[in-house]
Amino acid sequence: KFNKELSVAGREIVTLPNLNDPQKKAFIFSLWDDPSQSANLLAEAKKLNDAQAPK
């Protein structure tokens, strides 16, 4: 279960257009550290992506 959630969340995070590479890497490392938090980490990444969207 975690492997699928981890890969789905990881793929989504790397495609978020408004995150820079260090931010993406930080989220990916957090996913590896605790795969059970993949849904929460993906939600946080999406929030940050939205907040950094060009206005």
Rank of each mutant, 00 (worst) to 15 (best):
E5C: 14
E5W: 09
S38G: 13
Q37L: 07
A26P: 03
K46S: 04
A43E: 10
L16F: 05
P35M: 04
P17S: 05
D21K: 08
K46C: 06
P22D: 15
Q52C: 10
Q52A: 04
P22N: 15
N20S: 15
I28K: 00
K55G: 10
A53T: 08
P22A: 14
N40P: 04
R11W: 15
A45C: 04
K1Y: 13
K4E: 14
D34R: 00
K46I: 11
L16S: 02
G10C: 15
D21T: 10
K46E: 04
F29M: 14
Q23K: 02
F2S: 11
E5K: 06
L6E: 04
P17T: 08
K55L: 11
E44L: 08
V8Y: 10
K46L: 07
F27W: 00
L42I: 09
W32H: 05
A9V: 15
N20V: 04
N40S: 12
K1T: 12
A53G: 09
D34T: 05
P17I: 05
K25R: 10
K47Q: 09
I13Y: 00
K24R: 06
A53I: 06
P17H: 06
Q23L: 03
K25M: 14
K47G: 04
I28Y: 03
A45V: 00
K55V: 12
K1L: 11
V8T: 10
L41I: 14
Q52I: 04
N40R: 12
K1A: 13
V14D: 10
S30R: 15
N49A: 03
A9C: 09
A26G: 11
L42V: 12
N49D: 04
L41K: 03
L19E: 00
N49T: 01
G10H: 15
Q37K: 09
L42P: 01
A51L: 12
K1M: 14
A39P: 05
L6H: 04
D21R: 05
A53P: 04
P54Q: 10
G10Y: 15
K24A: 00
N3C: 15
A53H: 06
A9T: 11
I13P: 01
L48Q: 04
I28V: 04
A51T: 06
K1C: 15
A51M: 13
W32F: 10
S36I: 05
D50N: 07
P54C: 12
